[in-house]
Computed example of a mutant assay.
Amino acid sequence: MKRLALILVIIGALNWGLIGLLRFDLVATLFGGAASWISRTIYILVGIAGIYAVTLLFKDREGRETT
């Protein structure tokens, strides 16, 4: 689960980098525009992965929550 979340967060970060630098949305280009259902699904999954990745900030190396 952590690895999948990391992959999706990296995809999102690279896509936002391309948007910021070149005004080029790779996800929209590959999947038929920003409004297509598959692009929107990818955007949603990247968002969920980002939320999940935030929870990883609050765990120590052994996977226990820090207090």
Rank of each mutant, 00 (worst) to 15 (best):
K2C: 00
K2R: 10
L4H: 03
A5F: 12
L6I: 08
L6D: 11
I7P: 00
I7G: 01
V9F: 05
I10S: 02
I11V: 14
A13F: 14
A13M: 13
W16M: 08
W16E: 15
L18T: 12
I19D: 00
G20P: 00
L21A: 14
L21G: 05
L21M: 11
L22N: 09
L22G: 04
L22A: 14
D25C: 02
D25K: 00
D25E: 08
A28E: 12
T29Y: 13
L30H: 03
L30V: 11
F31Q: 10
G33K: 01
A34D: 09
A34P: 07
A35D: 12
A35M: 08
A35L: 07
S36F: 03
S36Y: 05
W37Y: 08
R40P: 01
R40E: 14
I42W: 01
Y43D: 08
I44N: 01
I44W: 13
L45E: 04
L45V: 10
G47V: 09
I48S: 06
I48Y: 11
A49T: 05
A49Y: 01
A49R: 00
G50W: 08
I51D: 06
I51P: 01
I51A: 14
Y52S: 05
A53K: 11
A53Q: 11
A53V: 03
A53E: 09
V54D: 01
V54G: 01
T55V: 06
L56G: 13
L57Q: 10
K59P: 01
G63Y: 06
G63Q: 04
R64F: 13
R64M: 10
E65S: 06
T66F: 08
T66E: 14
T67S: 13
T67P: 09
